Amino acid sequence: MFAAHKLCLVLDLDHTLLNSAKFVEVDPVHDEILRKKEEQDREKPQRHLFRFHHMGMWTKLRPGIWNFLEKASQLFELHLYTMGNKLYATEMAKVLDPTGALFAGRVISRGDDGDPEDGDERVPKSKDLEGVLGMESAVVIIDDSVRVWPHNKLNLIVVERYTYFPCSRRQFGF
């Protein structure tokens, strides 16, 4: 990374780069609006709304995400980090980086193929930089939560939580 004159940027997925909601969490009126919008935008190269039938969920990208990723990739080696499972992480990486040029497979996830929000008590409640190559001093983290990075607070930039779906707002008491 130093030879390339780039630091490492670790990006959280949920509530930082995007917001996802299960089909069952979205009320029928909102679902119909989302379906129409997704159909209208389906062929756009940089769309923001995705319907994943095989995972039973909607995903909405944070506004400005395409511009941010393009500029950040010029300055940093990008990594994605999620508490979600491997299937979810892989699908979100494809959405954010369809060509593989931005993340080049640098995706850190919980690692199983279960439900992305299964409530499993064995799921770790914190993140660390163990899965990120390089020296800790060369890593910048962007996340919506300081709580999940207890050992790397000096590397962390906390951003405002992105919540698009009403069920996500309720989850955080909004």
Score class of each variant (00 low, 15 high):
F2N: 13
A3N: 14
L7I: 07
L9V: 02
L11H: 02
D12C: 09
D14G: 09
T16E: 03
N19E: 10
A21E: 13
A21H: 11
E25G: 02
V26G: 02
H30Y: 14
D31S: 14
E32G: 06
K36R: 10
E39L: 12
Q40L: 15
R42C: 12
P45H: 08
L49K: 07
R51G: 00
F52L: 14
H54L: 14
H54A: 13
W58D: 03
T59A: 12
R62H: 08
I65C: 13
W66K: 00
N67R: 11
L75F: 07
F76Y: 15
E77R: 11
E77D: 12
E77L: 08
Y81W: 12
Y81T: 02
T82F: 01
K86L: 15
K86E: 15
Y88F: 12
A89Q: 06
T90Y: 13
A93S: 12
L96Y: 01
L96A: 09
A101M: 12
L102E: 05
F103I: 04
V107A: 03
I108Q: 08
D112G: 07
E117R: 10
D118E: 08
R122C: 06
V123K: 13
L129F: 01
L129A: 03
S145R: 09
R147C: 07
V148M: 02
P150Y: 05
L154H: 15
T163S: 11
T163I: 08
Y164E: 06
P166Q: 03
C167H: 05
C167I: 03
S168M: 11
S168N: 14
Q171V: 06
